[in-house]
């Protein structure tokens, strides 16, 4: 693109940015115009790029003689019957297929990656430097306590056992609060940076300050 088009584009982007930010002070027509444009362009963009991917995954194998891709293509077309009440039941077949694939992939991966390897990583050595030992004990205890907190919500009849159980749960809550505090500040970092970058776009790339 030439310099003039880039300049026009930057100005268009800056104007849309200001239209969106106007909502911070008052609801107005300009914001709603920009919001509608955002949805329109995002959906249009998504449709065109997905068409490309569809072409790659179906048309090219078909031209290479792989007729089996007609089956998933047919199943994909069946999903559109969800809009026709009389035949909506047919759209359940591809939905069932996708549910099976999605769950199968995530369950099999979760067993190894999220369960076995994480349990393996929790069983830590009680050797090494004092810092490593301290950290390993903290990780082990906090993992067990938090897991206990979420999995076991039983009120024991024996008051001693019950008070120990409540103690573990309270201890776990402190670790959860640390984790949530880190998560919350991490999220704040994200949102604040987004604001900084947009405003710096207006200052440096549009106004050239």
């Amino acid at each position: 693109m030439d310099a003039f088009t880039i300049g026009v584009g930057t100005t268009v982007a800056a104007l849309f940015t200001l239209m969106i930010y106007s909502i911070l002070f008052k609801e107005n027509v300009l914001y709603r115009f920009a919001e509608s444009t955002a949805i329109a362009v995002a959906v249009g963009y998504g449709v065109v790029t997905t068409l490309k991917s569809l072409r790659t995954s179906t048309y090219i194998p078909l031209t290479n003689g792989n007729m089996l891709v007609l089956i998933p293509l047919f199943l994909g077309v069946l999903t559109y019957l969800t809009f026709i009440k009389k035949y909506a039941w047919l759209s359940l077949w591809p939905i069932g297929f996708l549910t099976g694939v999605g769950l199968g992939l995530s369950v099999r991966g979760a067993i190894q990656a999220q369960l076995i390897e994480q349990i393996d990583a929790t069983i830590l050595p009680l050797t090494g430097s004092s810092t490593d030992l301290f950290n390993n004990i903290i990780i082990f205890i906090s993992t067990i306590a938090v897991l206990y907190y979420f999995l076991f919500t039983i009120n024991f009849k024996n008051p001693t056992v019950n008070s120990v159980s409540e103690g573990v749960r309270k201890f776990a809550r402190y670790f959860i609060m640390v984790g949530l505090g880190v998560g919350f500040s991490g999220a704040s970092l994200s949102w604040i940076v987004d604001v900084i970058v947009r405003i710096q776009f207006l200052l440096f790339e549009w106004l050239h300050l």
Partner: peptide, 9 residues
């Protein structure tokens, strides 16, 4: 940033 704590384990 908002996914930071989940990648820690």
């Amino acid at each position: 940033g908002y996914f930071l704590s989940e990648i820690m384990p």
